[in-house]
Nucleic acid binder design. Structure first.
Lengths: 300, 300
DNA sequence: ATTCATTGTTCGTATATCCGATCACTGTGT
DNA sequence: ACACAGTGATCGGATATACGAACAATGAAT
């Protein structure tokens, strides 16, 4: 669906509200002829008649009535959104605020943070598990651990934590019904159980290695969540193929529970990145934490 | 305001969702050049910068972020309206989007969602674990499970899930150093390991019962996180008293690891609330899920 | 019955948007 | 250090949409 449907819906709703093309034209700053032509094109696209016309009036058809009621509130919301746009425009002490994906905690971050807290008794530590994009300038977060290096003015990054093995698993029952994928692109013909970032806005693509190097395949999501424990349960219930951190899936991998597929094809994910802003006044507690993270890094 | 703003918002939201012009172009069946030009014209019209660009990526500006969150749900509604136009038979299909706190998954939600998905093969399900406030009108979320009933126009709530037992625990080493609290208010003289909601903006108060009924005490946080697994590890390291769901803490409660304190004083938490808007157009898939949640409730 | 005002429709022309090709920039791999 | 892949930006030409003018139809006023 492209952008013009949205313009058409806007016109359609205004005509329905006003009961006529000329009145709608006045509101929309368009010529009545433009309204007439736009509605005709829209009706052709939808293969549906939205208005009954006479030479003096327009009346909604039943399907036009349905679409009007179905879409009016959303149109109002978008009008208000645009209207409102114009109304809009730290001694080693204190609280260290970190953002990290949930998966980082058990892997390495809990231990690092606990050791930091022990060795810096005057620092309170706040770890917010979250995987959305963080604006280090404005969010009040001191440093963000993410799977990638964050882009931004004066943002620096330090690699932390272990390299991450992943695996693709499914229930025996599912594989019996849908077959075992043999090559990476086979997953496009399967139901996928996908991990979501950014409050569901992004799905993690599935990473593979082949004779020509690394490549990504984006499967069709049947189940989506941002907690791998949920994804495991969905996989156990036979709802599809699940792409998971191996360490999390390992306890469930056996011939009766979850079966690994495409083992020779999946490739590990890169290490976490501890991102922070260097140009901004760096608090001593942040500096101390970064130093500890680096020492932690060297000790591996 | 004319029709083209609506087309522009459609493009804007898709770019924001996909994080790039080329990805959005794929979805919208437009050329990347068209997306680039359309966004530029839109920004000029609004006299506002919506995206920060580099030569490799686009990131929303704060005002772009605001517009995105403000308009996304309306865009989803309009997309669905057009999509549903061809398919008005009340079929239970599409994507059900739920928001819930992480703790809900293992307790009851994973099971409920998996059973719903099995019995409604045409519905995709997206569960976003999050504990921030959800604007059900604007977020594109169909229903939000939270520990409390959400306030809002036409918002209804159904109680779901089990009653939640909690416990307060500490390492033996910590109790040796700081003493064992005997009454609820004693915790004010201790280091507290606190669970955080809302990206750290709110801390869970600790609930107690006494001769005069229920009351809450807010301890001084030394360690804060929004994942109880982290809190357990901090407690094990002797960093303070931790207030945890009993079910999560139970495996670690023994005389060498974590010791329960104030057992006779803590009171259980109320059940989760499944919040949704009833007056707004309710999709058949949401109705079906609510019905299943209610049946789930009766079977306990 | 006739006239008039108002509506939606049609069409040739003007304007806005879309697109392919190309360019500049940047991160990654060698 | 260099080559390459992938991104957003630019621009001249192609295409889609907007518009003014004219037309057909209709209800109200006389």
């Amino acid at each position: 669906m492209n952008r013009s449907n949205f313009g058409d819906i806007r016109i359609f709703v205004e005509v329905a509200r006003r009961g006529g093309f000329r009145a709608a034209a006045d509101v929309l700053n368009l010529a009545p002829a433009s309204i007439s032509e736009a509605i005709q094109r829209f009706e052709e696209k939808l293969e549906a008649r939205l208005f009954q016309r006479t030479t003096r009036a327009v009346v909604l058809t039943p399907i036009g009535e349905w679409l009007f009621e179905r879409s009016q509130s959303a149109v109002i919301d978008l009008e208000e959104a645009i209207g409102d746009l114009h109304n809009q425009k730290g001694q080693v002490a204190g609280t260290l605020r970190l953002s990290a994906p949930y998966s980082a905690g058990p892997f390495f971050l809990d231990d690092l943070v606990a050791r930091f807290a022990v060795s810096h008794p005057e620092v309170n530590v706040e770890v917010i598990y979250d995987d959305t994009k963080v604006d280090l300038l404005r969010s009040g977060i001191d440093a963000a651990i993410r799977s990638t290096t964050l882009l931004g003015a004066d943002t620096h990054a330090v690699p932390v934590g272990p390299e991450l093995e992943v695996t693709i698993v499914a229930a025996p029952d599912y594989l019996k019904r849908k077959g075992v994928p043999k090559r990476p692109n086979d997953i496009l013909n399967h139901d996928a159980i996908c991990y979501a970032f950014d409050h569901g806005r992004n799905l993690a693509p599935w990473g593979f290695k082949g004779s020509q190097g690394h490549f990504l395949v984006q499967p069709k999501p049947r189940m989506v969540a941002n907690d791998m424990r949920s994804l495991i349960l969905y996989a156990q219930r036979g709802l599809g193929l699940a792409y998971l951190y191996r360490e999390i899936a390992a306890p469930y991998i056996n011939k009766d529970d979850l079966i690994e597929v495409l083992s020779k094809h999946v490739s590990p994910l890169p290490r976490y990145s501890l991102n922070y802003i260097s140009k901004r006044h760096m608090t001593s507690r942040l500096r101390a934490f970064i130093d500890m993270a680096k020492v932690n890094e060297k000790s591996k």
